[in-house]
Amino acid sequence: MESPESWFHRRATHFVEAQVLFHLNQAGVLQTLRQGPCTAAEVARTLDLDPAVTGTLLDYVFGIDDLLDRNDAGQYSLSAFGDQVLARYSDSQSDKEKSSINMFDVRVGAYGPVWQRLGGMLKKEVRHGIDFHREGRFAEKGVTKLARHFAGTICEAIDHLDIETALEIGTTTGLLAQLSERRPGLALYGLDKSSRALDETKEALHLEHCDAHLIQADFLDVSGWAGNIKSERPGLIFSLHFHEILAQGVDRLVGALRELQQRLPGWVVLALEQPRLPHSERGSLEETLWLYGQSNILIHHLIGNGRILSREGWVELGELAGCLKVTDTSCGYLGYRAFTYHL
């Protein structure tokens, strides 16, 4: 069993190192070290950074972690383990120079303002969304990277259901481009209430030479967008963001599903969600899965921008909406499941 002293210093070190690695990555230091050994001064000169601060931070990471090596000439480089870490959290594994690295972007970057004001939130002095906001720009790359793991699940549903039209709710995932490539005959739609998200999606689709009809609307306002869908046959509505829609209440989402049954009968809704894991199963689950799940609940419930349901809860949601059939299958990644609601 770990001693109280070891527990304390380990937790404190993890907190500090996460901040250090996030900022080193944002400044381009980790990318520079991927290119080959160099001293802290050389890194600072290349990136126009403060040499003393750069040296102190690299010395700290080298001293407390296994990510870096340092030779007798004082040159830093990624260790074999460090290279594995960066490869795992990079957008591209084939082009090290141009790929971006998601290093604590969500936990430290996007939610940094939340942690800074956590005491005020606890004491009811400040409220997220009114007095301050998270830095969503840091979370977007993380969502895109996460979404890649679900293109196969969506394609399986498309093939199984013989779908010709697909509509994504929340368009910043990059999934529309992936579906266009994997299923070129598919009619694609993207729905988002954010004009900025739609502009970014439009640019990304253009760069990928993909075509999709983009609609600015709130998913819950079904009457405001359903009439724009042109399809003679039932299609698929899918999203990684139904937990965020749930922040507006179960009744509103259930009501939207019921209205969809009237406006788009025969369509299928696919919710790709990581359900809340039972605490009784903690001992039998992989630590990565359990920790990710708890963080997912924390960051959404803390600021009220989402609700994470249990597996039974997601199934019950479709049953409350009166769906003809509700099924759920594993996505094969981090406990995510595909909840299918037949309208």
Rank of each mutant, 00 (worst) to 15 (best):
Glu2Cys: 02
Ser3Phe: 09
Ala12Cys: 07
Val16Ile: 12
Ala18Asp: 07
Leu24Lys: 01
Asn25Ser: 12
Leu30Phe: 08
Gln31Ser: 13
Gln31Phe: 04
Gln35Met: 13
Thr39His: 01
Ala41Tyr: 02
Asp48His: 14
Asp48Cys: 13
Leu49Met: 05
Val53Leu: 14
Val53Met: 07
Thr54His: 09
Leu58Ala: 10
Asp59Pro: 01
Val61His: 11
Val61Ile: 15
Phe62Cys: 07
Asp66Ser: 15
Leu67Met: 12
Asp69Val: 13
Gln75Lys: 14
Ser77Ile: 08
Ala80Gln: 11
Phe81Cys: 03
Leu86Thr: 00
Arg88Ala: 15
Arg88Gln: 14
Asp91Ser: 15
Glu97Arg: 13
Lys98Thr: 13
Lys98Cys: 08
Ile101Ala: 04
Val106Cys: 11
Ala110Tyr: 00
Tyr111Ile: 03
Gly112Asn: 08
Pro113Trp: 04
Trp115Ser: 06
Arg117Leu: 12
Leu122Pro: 03
Leu122Phe: 13
Glu135Phe: 03
Arg137Pro: 01
Arg137Gln: 13
Phe138His: 15
Ala139Tyr: 01
Glu140Val: 15
Gly142Ile: 06
Lys145Asp: 06
Ala157Lys: 05
Ile163Lys: 01
Glu168Val: 06
Ile169Lys: 04
Ile169Asp: 07
Thr172Asp: 01
Thr173Glu: 05
Gly174Trp: 04
Gly174Val: 09
Gln178Asp: 15
Ser180Gly: 15
Glu181His: 12
Pro184Gln: 08
Ala187Ser: 14
Ser194Cys: 10
Ser195Lys: 12
Arg196Thr: 13
Glu200Arg: 14
Thr201Trp: 02
Leu205Asn: 03
Glu208Phe: 01
Glu208Trp: 03
His209Trp: 07
Ile215Lys: 06
Gln216Met: 12
Gln216Tyr: 04
Asp218Met: 01
Leu220Val: 10
Val222Met: 11
Trp225Arg: 08
Gly227Ala: 13
Asn228Phe: 10
Ile229Gly: 10
Phe238Cys: 07
His241Ser: 14
His243Ile: 03
Glu244Lys: 06
Ile245Thr: 14
Val250Lys: 09
Asp251Val: 07
Leu253Thr: 11
Gly255Arg: 05
Ala256Val: 05
Glu259Met: 11
Leu260Ile: 05
Leu260Ser: 02
Leu264Arg: 14
Gly266Trp: 05
Val268Pro: 02
Val268His: 11
Ala271Leu: 13
Arg276Ser: 13
Glu281Cys: 06
Arg282Cys: 12
Glu287Tyr: 04
Glu287Gln: 11
Thr288Arg: 15
Leu289Pro: 03
Trp290Asp: 02
Leu291Gly: 05
Tyr292Gly: 02
Tyr292Cys: 03
Asn296Gln: 08
Leu298His: 07
Ile299Asn: 07
Arg307Pro: 00
Leu309Cys: 08
Glu312Tyr: 03
Glu312Ile: 06
Glu312Arg: 13
Trp314Cys: 02
Leu317Ile: 08
Glu319Phe: 04
Ala321Trp: 05
Gly322Trp: 06
Cys323Asp: 00
Thr329Pro: 00
Cys331Leu: 06
Tyr333Gln: 09
Tyr336Met: 11
His342Gln: 14
